[in-house]
Amino acid sequence: MSARQAEAGAPVRAAPRREITPGAALPLLGFLLLAALFPFLPLGSRAEFLLQIAFFTLVAGIMALSWDILARSGQVSLAHAAFYGLGAYGYALLLKAGLPWLLAMPVAALLAGGVSLILGAVTMRLSGMYFAIATLAFTEVVRTIIQNLPESVAGGATGLLVPALLGGNSRAQYALAWGLLAFTVLVSLAVRLTRLHFAFAAIRQGEETARVLGVSIVRFKLLAFFISSSLAALAGVLYAGKTFFINPLETFSLANSIAPLTTSIFGGLYTTLGPVLGATVLRVAEELLHNSVKDGYLVVYGLVLMLSILWLPRGLMGLRRNRKHGGDL
């Protein structure tokens, strides 16, 4: 075979067309740049409101991207609300304990990451629906525990007051959210461009084969859980600091697990740009609908999820180029 190759005179080591070139990062950079400029646009009288929507779009982007990182290792989780909530509650309780916010934020994230290792260890050998059900049930239980702890500890069913992030300055809050999204994007790119990509993708596409080839599934599955849930917890911190008030029912709502999942699938699974783009489109659609109906605006997610599965399995990213398998970021 190599002889035939030599005869044809073609370079045997041509770069594979999937090799990622620096140019692939341009759309991402463009997106982050636009997001950074958003507060400086002439937003008019509704500036405060629009900035809030943009803030939660960034939060949704962090959630979706962090969910996708876990999904890359073949773990399709319905526990993202749990880590979002653990971030929010962890942050609130750490502030109550007297930690400065700048310290409370990363500590809350790491704590949530630590808890995720417990879930990850238990679900290690589960797949498909068993994994999904176990993670769904995990979320319900975390909520039940927080709800049933004495009210003096975590506020019980009523909830907790959280001091406003950055003194309530919405531009500064937006900047922080932007920074954390940019950080999440960097983590996602790091996962994509290092050995982690090969480990995660191999586990997802054939766990037993991956193990036979020496991939330590325990280490990499847990690592995926840790990275993903720590980032989700950061999103939870942003939420808690922005809304001043958190309660178990809303914080651990199933919606917070559904949204990142739907967003990633709609945007394009296993990419960095896809979930971020998906978050932008869906969050705006959700807000528009939220203006006209009080309840049930999540209908968008249900519909988009069904339509994506039936007609757009590769998501928005699949529309970009007709590639058999993506070399996109």
Binding site: V76, G128, M129, A132, I258, L261, T262, I265, V293, K294, D295, G296, Y297, L298, V299, Y301, G302, L303, V304, L305, M306, I309, L310, P313
Partner: peptide, 29 residues
């Protein structure tokens, strides 16, 4: 999706559940 991967089946019914639940929320509060 009968012949689709299990993940697709799961996510489809999951989407259906969200859709139905939120339609009810929209129509009935």
């Amino acid at each position: 999706v009968l012949l689709a991967p299990e993940l697709n089946q799961m996510l489809l019914t999951f989407g259906l559940g969200i859709l139905l639940q939120n339609l009810a929320l929209m129509l009935l509060g």
